[in-house]
Design a protein around this nucleic acid. Structure first.
Lengths: 187, 187
DNA sequence: AAATTTGTAGACCGGTCTGTCTAGTCTGAC
DNA sequence: GTCAGACTAGACAGACCGGTCTACAAATTT
C-alpha cells in the first residue's frame, strides 16, 4: 500500500491539473482516477463530498501554488515596470509550455461554477483575494500611495485575467505583453 | 407547423442563453430542446454537426448582439471617461439583472473549448476581434492617437473581461466600477 | 496475536449524455 | 390530386456520468 496521505495528494494534484485544462464539467472523476492510478473507493474515502469537494480543494491548491509563484516574481522586481513584465512572462510561459491549454488555473472553473456551487465559488473568491492582497503589497512596495493601491491591484489582476483568456482564444501571447506594457506605461 | 426558420432561431437563442449561463459542458442539448420546445429531430436537421455547431453559432450570435450594444453605448459617449463608465455599467447591469449568472456571453465557453474545438475557438476569436475593432475606433474618436489605440483597446477589453469574471466570483459589481474608474483616470 | 482503524480495490447502480433512425406532417409546385 | 422537399416528432442506442457498496489488505493499537 502507498504511504499515508500519498494517494490523496496524487488524486488532488491530478484533479487540479485536469480542472485547469478542461474545466469542471469537462473533467470526469473517472478520468482523474485513471490518470492518478487510484481506485474509486480511495477517492470517496478521501473526498467524501465527491467531485465538488475535489474541485474546491483543487482550486485552493492551485490558488496557493500560483499565488506563491506570483509573489516570488513580484518581490524580485525592483519597480512596477519590471514587476508587471515578470507577471506577464509568467503567464505567457505557462501558456506556451502547455500549448495554450493552461492559462489561469482558476478562471474556467470559477466561471463554470460561480452560480452553481457556493462552495467552489467561495474557494475561488478566497484564492483571488489572496492574489489581490499580494498585488496590493507589491504596488505599495513600488511606491504607489496606499489609497490607490487597492483599485490599482484590481485593475492589474483584472487585465491579466482578461489578457490570459484572450491569449488562449487567439492562440497568441502577444496580447498579454501588450497589456502589461500598457499598464506599466500608465502607472 | 411553425413558420419557416422560426424553430431554428428559437433553438439558437435558447442555446445562446444557456451556454452563457452554464457554459458548454454544463449545458446539455436535451435542456436546450426542453426549454425551446423543439424536438430532437429539428435540432439535428437545422444543426447537422450537433452541439459543436450549435455552440459556434451561439457564440457568433451573442458576440454580434453584445458587440452592437457596446458599440451603441460607446458611440453615445462624448469622451473616454463617459464611454468607459457606460461599458462598465452595461456589464454591471447584466450581472445584477441575472443574479450574477450572466457575465460575458463568451468567456465561459471560450475558456472551456479553446483547446478542445477549433471551430468554437475560431468563433470566439472572431467575436472578440470585432469588439476590439469597435473599441479601437471609439478610442480614436476620443482623441487617442492611432498608434496607441490598438494596445489600449486590448487593455480595456482585457480588464473588462477580467473584472466581469471577478465580479461574478465575488458576487459584487464594485470591482467592475473600480476598474473602469482607474482606466478612465489613467487615460 | 487479536482487534481496530485506515485505506485500497473495483463491481455495480440509476441516470444522463450526444447522436441516430424511422415515421409522419406540413407546404408549395405542377 | 399528387408528389417532392422541408421540417417535426420522439423512441432508441451505446457510452459515460457521479456515486454507493461490499470485500479485502495493510498498519496500528491493545
Amino acid at each position: 500500500m502507498a504511504p499515508r496521505g500519498e494517494t490523496r495528494e496524487r488524486i488532488l494534484r491530478t484533479a487540479a491539473d485536469l480542472f485547469q485544462r478542461q474545466g469542471y464539467h469537462g473533467t470526469g472523476v473517472n478520468q482523474v482516477l485513471v490518470e492518478s492510478g487510484a481506485p474509486k473507493g480511495s477517492l470517496y474515502f478521501h473526498f467524501p463530498e465527491g467531485k465538488e469537494q475535489l474541485a474546491s480543494e483543487s482550486v485552493a491548491l492551485s490558488g496557493r501554488t500560483v499565488g506563491e509563484a506570483l509573489t516570488e516574481a513580484v518581490l524580485a522586481a525592483p519597480d512596477a515596470r519590471a514587476g508587471l513584465a515578470a507577471l506577464g512572462e509568467h503567464f505567457a510561459r505557462s501558456l506556451r509550455d502547455s500549448d495554450f491549454r493552461k492559462g489561469c488555473p482558476l478562471a474556467t472553473v470559477a466561471l463554470e461554477t460561480a452560480a452553481e456551487s457556493e462552495t467552489i465559488r467561495a474557494a475561488c473568491d478566497t484564492a483571488y483575494g489572496e492574489w489581490l492582497d499580494g498585488l496590493r503589497a507589491a504596488l505599495r512596495g513600488w511606491g504607489v500611495p496606499a489609497e490607490r493601491a487597492g483599485p490599482l491591484a484590481a485593475l492589474v489582476l483584472s487585465s491579466l485575467q482578461g489578457a490570459v483568456m484572450l491569449a488562449r482564444v487567439q492562440r497568441d501571447v502577444s496580447v498579454l505583453h501588450q497589456v502589461t506594457r500598457q499598464l506599466a506605461e500608465l502607472l
